[in-house]
Amino acid sequence: MIPSKKEWTDALITRHGSALHKRFSSATVAICGLGGLGSNIAVALARAGIGRLILIDFDRVDITNLHRQQYKADQIGRYKAEALAENLLEIAPYTEIKAVTEKITGENMVSLLKDADIVCEAFDSAEAKAMLANGVLEQLPDRYLVAASGMAGMDTPNTIRTRKVTKRFYLCGDEVSDAASAIGLLAPRVMLCAAHQAHTVLRILAGEYEV
């Protein structure tokens, strides 16, 4: 049986304290790209009690995603945004979720992201990452951007880190391991980077701005 909203909230307050819970539960976080990074960021943030998640991805679940992304075999072919929303509501049923199946462009970026306090960049292609980073920093300068670069391959997990580039721009990853030149993406190293991003989101909401 699913716990009541009050039981759920009480449990989170027991874990995080009421001050942190208030900050987490009143926050809106947008996650752009719902692959290995985005789906794992979403699970971590939903568990932590983030109040509202905006999940954005135009793509559908493919069999080649399942080795690192938080989808299930029977969700192949579904829109990632909708499948992930379902999975998150099984994990954390009182999360408010907006699932968006549009592709983010320079034109629709502001309307899709304007309600978010923090934007997570979780795309796959380097060009898309740069497009979003520039777009958010140029068009939504009072939001926080938590982006990722470099998490592919079998290199040591210890080079995945978080760097504060500017006041509102955080970058997670090793910044060198390109999915195109390495052996590809492996769940734990991608999850590490996603965990850096999710934890950075929580730290920003907690008022801890340094890395």
């Binding site: 692959g35 290995g36 985005g38 380097a126 980073a133 670069s149 592919a152 390109d178 999915a179 991608v190």
Partner: peptide, 10 residues
Amino acid sequence: LEIVSFVGGG
């Protein structure tokens, strides 16, 4: 100047 150069993967 700080130049961030993104690599692919996500």
